[in-house]
Design a binder for these strands. Structure first.
Length: 945
RNA sequence: GGGCGCAUAGCUCAGUUGGUUUAGAGCGCGUCCCUGAUAAGGACGAGGUCCGAGGUCCGAAUCCUCGUGCGCCCA
């Protein structure tokens, strides 16, 4: 039936069912019955009440006959009818059971109203139009007396079946149904024959009113199902004969299998899926449609004996087969018809054979086809023709069970279930299985299942073709690239989160990852071109996937251990990333994998390339410069492989540019033909990784401190001091001053000799460790540590190896791992504090530092002009600076060589330059005029510094 | 009506199975920096009653109960 529920207004009718031969207390009394489907009233068979509910006998003003309804609803109904209701007596629902009534229409009643049947328990009873008991009766709406038309409702049908079970075989109530399969009234209801049921509601109500059984006609708003395809067509429930698979018999096995499946997110297992399995009902297998797999059951036209036919060959081998000529004729008419169609409608329906049970009778196929969800669930078997096709056992065994499948949440009852159900039924040892099958270890037919969230449109609503609340994928591809969409889907949320398909969000995810990575590549490409760095020329022979071993053969390629620390670091990071991404993907965690890839590209871009730029700028192809090239090249090639499954086009573009084009046939033609990088744990120096992370934090804090003190990075400073909570890396840091100095533009970086000048120490408990140990004493310890002098405690720890504290609950001894040291910067310094370290800037400026600051301002201004006048990276320029400021001029003279080197200036003067446009400058408050032009005499020379 | 889930910064989302300290990221916004990756890059900041109310616990965004709102599935 699907999802086509809509709110509509239907008639709401309150109808009198006059009691027949009631006890005296209920003389001249009618059951009051409510329904929103008047068209079902002609097929009424019972009225249901709840035995433990209290009912009232009500006198209505000006009415000769009394009404029975649930006491709880008397007021509500009186208000609707707008008449005064007087309760004359009350009666338990159980006392109404068995009472007979006259139904509103006598189409069936006139013939069967007096029919009685033999009960299994002895005695006899009227087969219909009696009050019966039902638990589903409520007082939420209606009257507490529920009209039962078993032909048009599942619970009503259950009531009929329960009644039938009470009677001896063939003696019970038949199913009354005055509606045909076309939804129109049949000849059983002559006045309405041929009319679509919903269209007859109006006239049915009119007839009820004319006959005096209608108490009230009203309107009722409720959700009603409509055809999901022809949206204007209301649906009705209708009894049809169907074929079922008795899945209920396998519930335990379904549950046991389900429990072994790794569901992502986990709650699906016991939640949505587990709950669905626990309340499993038999699988309604057959469909009354044309398209679909024909149900392969042939039935004897005389005896009803049925056979399931396993194959076309088996069918043809049946005795007395006829009807195959239908297919032959069709094939002659249209030779292009695929042979697969011969087992489909209409051809297969022509095939009949001799019944083994009745001489002369024929076996004919039933008319139904199979629910297409069965086909979907049969995929793991049917794709190989298992078990019938030759060789299928081997193919099947090699692919079963599947490692993982993925679909959206709505497939819980769809594909996920059909796969699970068929496989479980097929491979469960229930004593009835065919020889072919035997129990298979759970889980099957899939081990892992990623249940995706639903895709939502731009507005957060369900994507809708009619609402057009989304951008066409093709437009997204054209504008931002398919990889932008892929990366957005992979990296922005866990897969089970419903995804908003938003153009803006897709656009915004590009710079952080894809563009940043591409910038790294651009940087490499620009300078590799300038320097003629050519890996393909440096390596001979086949390079295949360009694995580390292939690179190692390159001329100029030095062993990694011999390279600069930062080279070892970034290559180590690439291996750490490969390991982490692989681990995440093995756990089906694409979100975590993307986060890790992003982290690596960030490290490559914002630390490696950034801090190695001047290595690429140096004039000669030194050993160090070559190392930098090989390192960056290897990182980019590895990255291309790492991102290949995530952003295949960008990955391929990298591979083509970096490998496929330069190496030609010596390398694999596509990154997608390469193996996924395997992390080389030996290449990872975890300590170095931590140390570098620390440097990055220090630099970040240094910049923060500069910001706070309003000291721009252009202004060199004399010194930066660092205070660390953890002394382990002190020595290492001292050796890496240069890196920090360079990034922060300071002359000296050192570990503070007198840290307590700048900071105070706080000792905090490591709660995760101490919580279980101390329990209720923990608050006391926290208070004690907060009140203590952190510096003293640390001295004690240094001297004794532990800190001993007296607490109300006894003495506590804390070692280094039991505590965390927090640093707090004191006021009055240009400082910034992080979790584990504090960075303090020396803010006093000497004349020389100020002058150097000026020089850097001038460099920046000249670089700006270079860009404005469209210089190539390698262009030499002529520069003229005219200024009235002696300080500025002095600084420029003093740092002339520095300025020339930074800006590729070949001619430098303090005069206006002919042929150059003047540009006005403001350098820290001093005015100057700058002239820049390309120095043509030096234009074609290669870069040197 | 039943089941399952979700609710964290303006927006979109993470939050490692309970560890308090400064609850994170991207985008957006603001301020600024850097600039030989340059129609890029970076830093800093503002912005949070972790939906509400109880409970368990030394300790809750996290576990339990109830409520509210939303979504999906089923009736």
């Amino acid at each position: 039936m699907g999802q086509g529920y809509r709110e509509v207004a239907d008639p709401s009718v309150y109808v009198r069912f006059p009691l027949v031969d009631p006890p005296k207390a209920l003389a001249d009394t009618d059951l009051l019955v409510w329904t929103t489907t008047p068209w079902t009233l002609p097929s009424n068979q019972f009225a249901a009440v709840k035995p433990d509910l209290e009912y009232s006998v009500v006198r209505v003003e000006d009415e000769p006959r009394r009404l029975i309804m649930a006491s709880a609803l008397v007021e509500t109904i009186a208000a609707k009818v707008k008449k005064e209701f007087v309760v004359e007596s009350t009666v338990a629902g159980s006392e109404l059971l068995g009472l007979r009534y006259v139904p509103p229409f006598d189409y069936y009643y006139q013939r069967q109203g007096q029919t009685r049947g033999k009960l299994k328990s002895g005695g006899a009873e009227h087969v219909a139009w009696r009050v019966v008991a039902a638990d589903f009766v409520t007082t939420d709406s209606g009257t507490g007396v529920v009209h039962q038309a078993p032909a048009f409702g599942e619970v009503d049908f259950d009531v009929l079946q329960a009644e039938q079970a009470r009677f001896a075989d063939g003696q019970g109530p038949p199913l009354l149904c005055s509606v045909g399969p076309d939804g129109k009234f049949t000849e059983e209801t002559p006045e309405y024959q041929g009319r679509w049921v919903k269209d007859a509601d109006r006239d049915i109500c009119r007839q009820l009113r004319d006959e005096g059984t209608l108490l009230l006609l009203d309107q009722y708003l409720h959700d009603y199902p409509f055809c999901w395809r022809a949206e204007e067509d209301p649906l009705i429930q209708y009894p049809r004969k169907s074929w079922f698979i008795r899945t209920t018999k396998f519930v335990d096995k379904l549950l046991a299998n389900n429990r072994e499946i790794h569901w992502l997110p986990e709650h699906i297992r016991d939640g949505r899926m587990g709950n669905f399995l626990e309340t499993n009902v038999d699988w309604a297998l057959s469909r009354e449609r044309y398209w679909g797999t024909p149900l392969p059951i042939w039935v004897c036209e005389k005896t009803g004996y049925a056979e399931a036919v396993a194959s076309y060959a088996e069918l043809l081998a049946k005795p007395g087969v006829e009807g195959t000529e239908a297919w032959d004729a069709a094939k002659r008419t249209n030779p292009a018809l695929p042979d697969d169609l011969r087992v489909h409608k209409p051809y297969v329906d022509q095939i009949t054979y001799d019944s083994p049970k009745a001489p002369g009778a024929r076996m004919r196929r039933v008319s139904e086809v199979i629910d297409c969800w069965f086909d979907s669930g049969a995929m793991p078997f049917a794709q190989w023709g298992y078990p019938a096709r030759e060789g299928s056992h081997e193919q099947f065994a090699s692919q079963f069970p599947a490692d993982f499948i993925s679909e959206a949440l709505d497939q819980t009852r769809g594909w996920f279930y059909s796969l699970l159900a068929i496989s479980t039924l097929l491979f469960s040892d229930d004593g009835e299985a065919e020889d072919e099958t035997r129990p298979v270890a759970y889980p099957h037919p899939f081990r892992n299942c990623i249940v995706l969230g639903l895709m939502l449109g731009e507005d957060g609503q369900k994507m809708s073709k009619s609402k057009r609340n989304y951008r066409e994928p093709r437009e997204i591809f054209d504008r931002y690239g398919a990889d932008a969409l892929r990366w957005y889907l992979f990296s922005n949320q866990t897969p089970w989160t419903s995804i908003r398909y938003s153009e803006q969000a897709i656009r915004e995810c590009i710079p952080e990852f894809l563009l940043r990575l591409w910038n790294c590549y651009s940087f490499f490409a620009i300078y590799a071109n300038i320097d003629k760095f050519d890996p393909a020329a440096a390596i001979s022979g086949t390079v295949d996937q360009l694995a580390p071993g292939d690179l190692a053969r390159a001329r100029g390629y030095r062993p990694i251990v011999e390279r600069a620390e930062i080279d070892r670091w970034i290559l180590g990071e690439s291996h750490r990333a490969a390991a982490a991404v692989t681990e995440a993907m093995d756990a089906y965690d694409n979100y975590g994998a993307c986060a890790r890839l992003n982290e690596f590209v960030d490290a490559l871009s914002n630390w490696y390339v950034r801090s190695c730029r001047d290595r690429f700028w140096s004039g000669e192809m030194t050993r160090d410069k070559a190392d930098a090239y090989w390192t960056l090249y290897e990182c980019l090639v590895t990255t291309a492989k790492l991102i290949a499954p995530f952003t295949p086009f960008v990955a391929e573009a990298l591979w083509q540019n970096l490998v496929a084009e330069p190496f030609g046939a010596r390398a694999r033609e596509s990154v997608h033909l390469c193996d996924y990088p395997e992390a080389d744990v030996a290449a990872v120096d975890e300590t170095l990784s931590e140390q570098m992370a620390l440097v990055r934090e220090i630099v970040s804090l240094g910049r923060s401190a500069r910001m706070g003190a309003k000291l721009k990075v252009r202004q060199p400073l004399a010194r930066v001091e660092m205070i660390l909570a953890d002394r382990r890396y002190h020595e290492w840091l001292e050796r890496h001053e240069a890196l920090i100095c360079d990034e922060l533009n300071v002359k000296q970086a050192e570990i503070a000799e007198d840290p307590e000048q700048y900071i105070t120490y706080t000792v905090l408990p490591n709660l995760k460790r101490l919580g279980p140990r101390l329990g209720k004493d923990l608050p006391a310890l926290r208070k004690r540590l907060a009140g203590a002098d952190g510096g003293k405690l640390l001295v004690e720890l240094e001297a004794e190896g532990k800190i001993t504290l007296a607490l109300p609950g006894g003495e506590v001894s804390l070692d280094r791992d039991d505590i965390q040291i927090r640093l707090q910067a004191k006021e009055g310094w240009a400082a910034a504090q992080g979790r584990h370290c504090v960075v303090v800037l020396a803010t006093e400026l000497t004349e020389e530092l100020v002058a150097e600051g000026f020089a850097r301002e001038l460099v920046r201004a000249i670089q700006d002009r270079r860009k404005e006048i469209g210089c190539e990276y390698t262009d030499r320029i002529a520069v003229g600076i005219v200024t009235d400021s002696p300080d500025l001029r002095a600084a420029a003279e003093r740092f002339e060589n520095y300025i020339r080197g930074e800006t590729l200036t070949s001619r430098f003067s303090f005069e206006p330059l002919a042929g150059a446009d003047p540009a006005e400058l403001d350098v820290a408050g001093f005015a100057a005029t700058l002239y820049v032009k390309v120095d043509k005499d030096n234009r074609s020379r290669t870069k040197e510094r």
